[in-house]
Design a binder for these strands. Structure first.
Length: 622
DNA sequence: GCCGTTTTCGGCCCGACTGTTTTCAGTCG
């Protein structure tokens, strides 16, 4: 059992205990241990093997025993008992903002409600307000929350799907009869939420993929098992689609399975407008042909033909050589951010149409085909372009590591600079720093900067934008930092007017360099606060403020479309991890994926710049 | 449930905001 699965099991135990009304500190112990497992570098199984589970911070005798049972048997009697006691629907309700375990328990006990659907009905029928302490606002919060949950019910964040996809890819590769495996679908495109994990597998006849995968320890349910397709659900509830093809069909299948559907349609109708059918393009494998004909037919109905003068004619087609998979076309793809991205061999299709390669992250029919025709595809940013990380936390506030440890981890990633940006004093839960503590931290940073070679630590702060729009420190404190990020951590339920007034005040502030996680959303868990993203971008442009892509896979905030808009306004972006742990500096890749989906080039991202240039660009230094 | 060169018991992050209320419980970060 993987660390992630263990973490999920402990999280579920914590949630169920909370719903049972266990004391909060016990509940927290489970959640803390789960988080520790998630961030653990070593596999818990290895720790167990040398009897060292209790070395994990937050894991004592009891939790070690429960983890050991999960590791050895794949099950937990404790968890199974809890599941019997607490209806699973109640756990889903915990994700509704404004509804906590006490309210859920009360609703359950008084009204006998056990599922989201029943909860929604009760709210519609105004039965929730009959309970003490609950009124119309609570019902509204429930209706909004249920709506949000329904939207993402079948989806998981990329941060869950992608590691799982990579793990399965590596495991499938070891199965007899398998020649190649690659990740396709929305994971390959880097979508923030993923409905299912698509894997394309090139196999020989008599392979054992179905045999092995249906018995895989992480597979809970086999949804379909056909000769060329396997549909599974994992213990974490993620849907896996495995497409089995002969090796000769691998590349074409990658093209289809990567999508998006809209991109595919548009490309095929472009081909059709040149008098080319799918067969001419080397796309005519029997399995896909019928399906794609239907797509094509539909596409021609609702899509305008691509106009003449788009720079391509059938006479100019690049020569197509059977069997040649040439990724020399992949000028933008030095960084293989989607596993096997460039190796998938699906560049042939674009090549055949005389187009430059379009990377998976752009395949959304958001103008990428037109840009390719004009030769104006962006030279997308890659992870290798990143020179530093400007948002992270340490033990001074709610991080777990020292400044030195964060700096060492950053150096190991090849960074030239980082900014330490702990929380400001009002954020008491995160142990926000008093003015005195700030002084001590700044002294430590100065000392480290003298000791360390090859990396510069900036003394920064993530200062709260208070509910009334003021910042959490006076200007004479703020001006002492090298760099200031301003973020909202309170008043999430204010009206848009009020939130925007706060953001505007922050953006106009002379010492605010970066606006942190601008919309405040948590993927699948919390909607953005009520903001006008377009207006934020306008204001950022007008005030010279940098906007953040918060690279935490729980946030990805700004999102891809907002990033694209920011680029059009010429607003510089900082891709920051907001890491609370040295391992989480690795989340940078999710931020880079989002940036790529937002068409960003290195130039648009300030933490690809040399430090001197970055510093000179900050408001405080201009 | 975890943790301890202040403690093997009694702490554990705690204050603001919200919605429902006439003085506060629940939620959240």
């Amino acid at each position: 059992m993987t660390n992630l699965e263990l973490a999920w099991a402990l999280t579920e135990m914590g949630d169920l205990l909370e719903l049972k009304g266990e004391e909060p500190f016990k509940v927290r112990a489970y959640h803390r241990a789960a988080r520790a497992l998630e961030n653990l570098e070593e596999e818990a199984a290895a720790l167990y093997a040398r009897d060292a589970l209790e070395e994990i911070p937050g894991v004592g005798k009891n939790l070690a025993k429960k983890i050991a049972e999960l590791l050895t048997t794949g099950r937990s009697t404790f968890l199974e008992n809890l599941r019997r006691e607490v209806p699973p629907g109640l756990r889903e309700m915990l994700a509704i903002p404004g509804l906590g375990s006490r309210s859920i328990r009360q609703i359950h006990q008084a009204l006998g409600i056990t599922t989201l659907e029943e909860l929604e009905t009760a709210a519609r029928e105004k039965r929730i307000r009959t309970l003490p302490g609950m009124g119309s606002k609570t019902e509204l919060a429930i209706l909004r929350g249920v709506e949000m949950l329904k939207e993402v019910r079948e989806q998981v964040p990329l941060g869950v799907a992608r590691p799982l996809a990579m793990l399965l890819r590596d495991q499938i590769l070891l199965i007899p009869g398998v020649e190649r495996v690659a990740i396709a679908g929305s994971v390959r495109r880097g979508c923030e939420m993923v409905g299912d994990v698509d894997l394309v597998v090139a196999v020989q006849p008599g392979n054992q993929v179905a045999d092995v995968m249906t018995r895989h320890p992480q597979v809970k349910e086999v949804l379909a098992s056909e000769p060329d397709r396997l549909s599974l659900r994992t213990t974490l509830g993620v849907k896996i689609e495995i497409i089995l093809v002969p090796p000769g069909d691998f590349a074409v299948t990658m093209f289809y399975a990567t999508g998006s559907k809209a991109h595919r349609r548009r490309l095929i109708s472009l081909a059709a407008s040149r008098g080319l059918g799918v067969a001419d393009l080397g796309l005519a494998t029997p399995r896909w042909l019928a399906e794609e004909k239907a797509v094509l037919a539909a596409g021609q109905e609702d899509q305008p033909a691509i106009s003449a003068g788009d720079g391509i004619s059938s006479g100019k087609l690049a020569p197509w050589k059977e069997g040649v998979i040439d990724d020399s076309f992949v000028v933008n793809y030095s960084y293989q951010i989607a596993p096997n991205g460039g190796e998938a061999g699906d560049s042939f299709f674009y090549r055949r149409l005389g187009l430059p390669y379009i990377v998976p992250e752009l395949r959304e029919d958001r103008g990428e085909i037109e840009a390719a025709l004009r030769g104006e595809l962006p030279r997308l940013i890659t992870l290798a372009d990143i020179r530093g990380d400007l948002h992270m936390h340490t033990r001074y506030s709610d991080g777990v590591a020292t400044i030195a440890a964060m700096a060492a981890a950053a150096q190991a990633r090849g960074y030239q600079y980082i900014a330490i940006t702990d929380h400001s004093r009002s954020l008491v839960v995160a142990r926000g720093l008093s003015v005195e503590q700030l002084k001590a931290q700044r002294e430590e940073i100065a000392r480290l900067n003298e000791e360390l070679e090859g990396i510069t630590i900036l003394a920064g702060i993530e200062v709260d934008i208070l509910a009334d729009g003021r910042l959490d420190y006076e200007d004479d404190v703020l001006k002492e930092f090298d760099l200031v990020i301003a973020s909202i951590h309170s008043g999430f339920r204010q009206e848009e007017e009020q939130v925007m007034a706060r953001l505007e005040a922050a953006l106009r502030h002379p010492y605010v360099d970066i606006l942190g996680h601008p919309t405040g959303r948590m993927l699948g868990r919390r909607r953005p606060y009520l903001v006008d993203v377009g207006r934020i971008i306008e204001l950022a442009a007008a005030t010279g403020t940098i906007l953040e892509i918060n690279a935490s896979p729980d946030r990805l905030d700004l999102n891809d479309t907002a990033v694209r808009l920011a680029r059009e306004y010429g607003v510089p972006i900082a891709i920051n991890t907001d890491a609370h742990d040295p391992n989480r500096l690795a989340d940078m890749e999710y931020g880079v994926l989002t940036a790529r989906r937002g068409w960003l080039e290195p130039e648009n991202v300030v933490n690809t710049w040399e430090l001197e240039r970055l510093l000179a660009r900050l408001k405080r230094n201009r």
